[in-house]
Amino acid sequence: MGERQVEFRNVSFRYQEDMPWVLRDVSFTIGPDEWVAVIGHNGSGKSTIAKLMNGLLFPQEGEILVDGMPVNEKTIWDVRKQVGMVFQNPDNQFVGTTVKDDVAFGMENHGMPRELMLERIKESLSAVGMSDYEQQEPHRLSGGQKQRVAIASVLAVSPKFIILDEATAMLDPKGRKEIMNTVHRVQEERDLSLITITHDLHEVTQSSRVIVMNKGEVWMQGSPRDVFSKKEHLQEIGLDTPFVSKLADHLKAEGVPLTREPLNHQELLEELWTSRSIM
């Protein structure tokens, strides 16, 4: 039971006894091959969720299960093999002196044999489109390239879950696109679940499910369409909604009948097209 799942059961967390709760009674499940986006404004507790998932922090209350294992001091090394993480700052997670060394770092930690490492380095660098940079030093790479290397490093250990903790926040639009394309491809090609913690609305619309965090609690869960159709509520807790979603609202106010919440330009335009033919 619980195979290839991450499960939070009534999890509460705070850094110290005299400090306020960062997370309160948080429960959710992330299933196999899902892409779950976690959103919420700064301080909503969303990054803490990531750290709890691979045992960088432990909850005071509740239980976290990864792939059927409860996360605790005894299991963290196995848990970390299953849960790969990519952090926000591209520089501060690059350990190796070259791209190749960095991809190897995680595998070395898990004691993989050298032949397997060489094979996996090739594989994972090609999966993120960085094969030509094997010998490159980190300070010669762009932010987007460094983050792709970080993803390759995670893939090399072949985890069942990958968490991107605001991994695109420090990148320019080009870097952001690179990462999202990479992630898309990887998610299609491999059996893994993806958890993206983000502010980027565009990323959110591409996910299969959204968890909205507010003040340490799960505020809402659902498909991107469901979540964005409740925009008034999102704005209440200081979150933005995509352009098409706003436009759709104004259109409805103008009396244009729209039946479903559009997630992208095309969806909205198609509906406008149909409604025009009816009228």
Binding site: N54, M85, N92, V95, M107, E108, R114, S153
Partner: peptide, 22 residues
């Protein structure tokens, strides 16, 4: 941040570690 990233990538000291550079 680096220490946290290293830990997240399974670093736990030299024991049981293999090496790419040979």
């Amino acid at each position: 941040e680096l220490a946290m990233a290293m830990e997240a990538r399974g670093y736990q000291g030299g024991e049981g570690r293999t090496k790419l550079r040979e």
